[in-house]
């Protein structure tokens, strides 16, 4: 096409360049699939053949993604903008309601917004602690010592014990809350709570309280943190085992101390896994069953007041927040990660 014949306005240029871009993409995508000796000789190349085989291999995923993920997602996005009523025998009936559900979730429902902010702060603190702890544990488990196999077996138990029903089963019941309340009273009366008394001691002796509060919260939540770090330990452990021994030997010969070889070899070699583990930790934390936000979503979905509109609005808000956090995390960490090429 000759460009001078066209009206060379801004919109004309845009039309022309976008058309070219679209044609390029279409050609790129469909080249391996249109058999035509005359118009598409590239169909018969090895590259196209491999592309066809590759697509065939991932076809189950594509189908599943379109049918069981994209379709429901679009539907739930639609539901989150509608007033939904359940009609017996007919399914769901929807009327357009714009942002009402979002307004309801954030401003009317008195738990959701506070739960969301609480969970985010807890997530930030806990996932940092999880990463550090799981790295330390993996580092220890990678060393030679007596009873290492037993320790490895035990440190895997959290993967089993924190999955599915087992994770929140006894903390979700009313009886547990009752018991916890009682035992807290007893502890307060007898004054045996070690971390609380230590905290008192430190704060009265004039040490800054803000940081210590965070640290003490971590210590109090150590059981949860260990329970959340099963997979991370395994991943870090695998990374540590992949570091070639020769690197350490070379460092030793050059006179590196243990600390130096940790900083210069171990940590950089494992840092790509930091990204994987961090993302996994954040996702795991956001998806937990005993998470307060999940509970309030479930509340609107199954138990208290069934309102699919509000529950989808909530889960979309939650989804957006978690995506944002994962994005920020991976942006920051991927700057500092270095990849080792053999």
């Amino acid at each position: 096409m000759n460009r001078t014949e066209q009206n060379s306005s801004f919109w004309g240029d845009l039309w022309y360049s976008s058309k070219r871009a679209v044609l390029k993409v279409v050609k790129y995508v469909f080249t391996p699939f249109i058999p035509s000796k005359k118009h598409n000789p590239e169909y018969y190349t090895m590259k196209s053949r491999n592309a066809r085989i590759g697509i065939l291999f991932i076809l189950p995923f594509i189908l599943g993604f379109l049918v069981f993920m994209v379709r429901p997602l679009i539907q739930s996005l639609w539901l989150s903008f509608c007033n939904v009523t359940v009609v017996q025998g007919k399914g769901l009936q929807t009327t357009w309601a714009a942002f009402d559900n979002y307004y309801y979730a954030l401003r009317v429902d008195n738990n959701f917004a506070t739960n969301l902010t609480d969970e985010i702060t807890r997530m930030l603190v806990n996932s940092f602690a999880t990463l550090v702890l799981s790295f330390v544990i993996a580092f220890i488990l990678n060393q030679q010592f007596k009873g290492r196999t037993v320790a490895r077996v035990i440190f895997f138990l959290p993967v089993i014990l924190s999955s599915g029903v087992l994770s929140g089963i006894d903390s979700n019941t009313e009886s547990y809350n009752l018991m916890m309340g009682m035992s807290a009273d007893v502890a307060a009366a007898s004054g045996v709570n070690l971390s609380a008394s230590l905290q008192d001691l430190l704060s009265t002796s004039g040490v800054g309280s803000g940081v210590f509060e965070v640290v003490f919260n971590m210590i109090d939540a150590i059981y949860d943190i260990i329970m959340a770090s099963g997979i991370q330990i395994i991943v870090f452990l695998s990374g540590l085992q992949n570091i070639p021994r020769s690197l350490y030997e070379a460092a030793d010969v050059e006179g590196c101390t243990g600390w130096e070889s940790f900083c210069k070899i171990t940590f950089p070699m494992v840092s790509p896994l930091l990204l994987v583990n961090g993302i996994y930790t954040i996702i795991d934390f956001f998806m937990k069953n005993d998470n307060a936000v999940m509970e309030s979503i479930n509340e609107y979905m199954y138990t208290k007041k069934i309102d699919y509109g509000v529950s989808s609005a909530m889960s979309w808000l939650y989804f957006a927040v978690s995506i944002a956090f994962i994005g920020i995390f991976s942006f920051i960490v991927s700057r500092g990660v270095n990849y080792y090429e053999d």
Binding site: F65, F68, M69, L73, G91, F286, M287, S315, Y318
Partner: peptide, 23 residues
């Protein structure tokens, strides 16, 4: 497509459960 694989890990199942149920 690989980004889509990663996305499937991140999307909370609650977000799609009601419409999956209907489906």
């Amino acid at each position: 497509w690989f980004a889509c694989v990663i996305a499937t890990i991140v999307i909370p199942p609650q977000a799609i459960s009601s419409s999956l149920y209907n489906y």
